[in-house]
Design a protein around this nucleic acid. Structure first.
Lengths: 143, 143
DNA sequence: CTTAACTCTTTACTCTCGCTAACTTCCAAT
DNA sequence: ATTGGAAGTTAGCGAGAGTAAAGAGTTAAG
């Protein structure tokens, strides 16, 4: 049934590594900057254009109330605008403002500094292994 | 200088995937079970033997007060025992109790169920890519 | 031998970020 | 026209980690 028999040790190790690494990534965040989820949402809005909160929540695998808070935080900083949906007045359309793109870029740079530095210390083989696994990780995260 | 020029897109994607995946892993945890950090600590104690809170905190890359809380939770459930350090009375030695090993095994099984199920749906190539990247992830998490 | 400085652990408090439950407003189908 | 369901928000809760500071113990300097 299972195509490749994911053994328990692998599963446990992957789980532990991901959880620990995520803790490190969260901690390395600078003070003034956006939270990972805020940054992710803002990036989606910048890259893919305006969306409703519901769509964003599904995209980020988060419950709607959580997305409301994320959006509120972004709106406070003037990075996002909320407008009524043209057709359906229950809905709201969230869009990135002009300064958003620059802020995304700056925050991504800061947020990635720690990780980038550590990646730079890996051997080419290690980097290659990571790059090869990246699509799989993305698939799992989205699952 | 950097051996393989970790490009920004890779860094950003890796970061986003790890953070999102960790959120999924946390949420999928069964109710009655231990928190990821508690489980990780208990595993360390079972596998490597008794340790002081300070050592555990360094091992888990967590601040000492956080470790105190984790240990308190484990002690409440009778999974861990705290005894005075033989040489240095400032320190405390934490050790796993008898039922700890079984609980570790049971919780690890539950905690990994979601991940195991999704890994089982990957192709053999995808699984292989993950397995190849696992040591690198561990290295990063420990860095 | 006494005092000062340092270490380990714990307590108290705060913050972030996710969740569920419940409410409001609105659409759509009978 | 009414009723059922959907989208968003509000309110409140809980997990988990961080900082600051106190308490107890140790080590080193004079």
């Amino acid at each position: 049934m299972s195509p490749s028999e994911p053994d328990r040790a692998t599963v446990a190790a992957l789980r532990a590594s991901v959880l620990k690494l995520s803790r490190r990534l969260r901690n390395q965040r600078a003070d003034e900057t956006l939270s990972p989820t805020q940054l992710s949402v803002l990036t989606v809005l910048v890259v893919r254009g305006a969306m409703t909160p519901g769509e964003l929540a599904r995209q980020e695998k988060v419950q709607p109330p959580s997305m409301t808070r994320v959006i509120a935080g972004l709106e406070e900083r003037g990075l996002v605008r909320r407008e009524p949906h043209p057709d359906d007045r229950r809905q709201v359309v969230v869009s990135a403002t002009e300064p958003a793109a620059a802020v995304v870029e700056e925050n991504r740079r800061l947020g990635n500094a720690w990780l980038a530095e550590h990646l730079a210390r890996l051997t080419p083989e290690e980097n290659e292994a990571l790059r090869a696994a990246l699509p799989v990780l993305e698939k799992l995260a989205q699952a």
